[in-house]
């Protein structure tokens, strides 16, 4: 029987009518429209569907949405704030920690969960933790480097609004003005 479930995702409340068998993965992707969380293996192995629920990293493909009521849910869409990428996002960009990108939201969310609880993990701790997130493109070297870059404070988060300024400047270069 359908019921109303309120989910708090990335700080926003969503009231969704769902069957109790609705998986968190599908609630996020199909009911809320946050498609950054991906489905890879459907059995909790690959980590593409990783999200943080109540401070814990979980597989949303094996989690009932109804069991997440009242808990803070963080997905990849919740990381960038005020035009700034999360340092991990910035690091993955700069250090090439992705190729096809399908596992990337899960990798970044997993890395965030690690650094939230352990801001200075050892190399071994990173490898052990991240081994739950499969990637078929990178061989993991650049994912590892990206995370290490954040751990070592090498990443400067750029204000993405600078981009808008540049575009605005281009827009004001002339021709449209003379036409009007």
């Amino acid at each position: 029987m359908k019921r109303h479930v309120a989910l708090n995702v990335n700080g926003e409340e969503y009231e969704i009518e769902m069957e109790p068998n609705r998986l968190l993965l599908y609630a996020l992707r199909d009911d809320i429209g946050l498609t950054g969380t991906k489905e890879g293996c459907s059995i909790g192995v690959c980590g593409a569907c990783s999200v943080i629920v109540g401070g814990r990293l979980v597989s949303s493909c094996l989690t009932l949405a109804v069991a997440c009521r009242g808990k803070e849910i963080t997905t990849i869409e919740g990381l960038a704030r005020d035009g700034r990428l999360h340092p991990l996002q910035q690091a993955f960009l700069e250090y090439g920690g992705f190729q096809c990108g399908i596992c990337t939201p899960g990798q970044i969310i997993a890395a965030k969960a690690l650094l939230d609880s352990n801001p200075h993990p050892t190399e071994e701790e990173i490898k052990e933790w991240m081994s739950g997130n499969l990637c078929r493109c990178t061989g993991y070297y650049k994912i590892f480097e990206s995370i290490m870059a954040v751990v070592q404070g090498k990443v400067r988060v750029e204000d993405q609004r600078a981009r808008e300024h540049r575009e605005a400047r281009i827009q004001s270069l002339g021709v449209y003005k003379s036409e009007s």
């Binding site: 992707r29 498609t35 993955f92 960009l93 990337t104």
Partner: peptide, 19 residues
């Protein structure tokens, strides 16, 4: 250089077929 589609991929905005 940073990937041209990189921003979309690290933010989860890249549109895959399942999306």
């Amino acid at each position: 250089v940073v990937r041209v589609e990189g921003y979309d991929k690290v933010t989860g905005e890249a549109r895959y077929v399942a999306d």
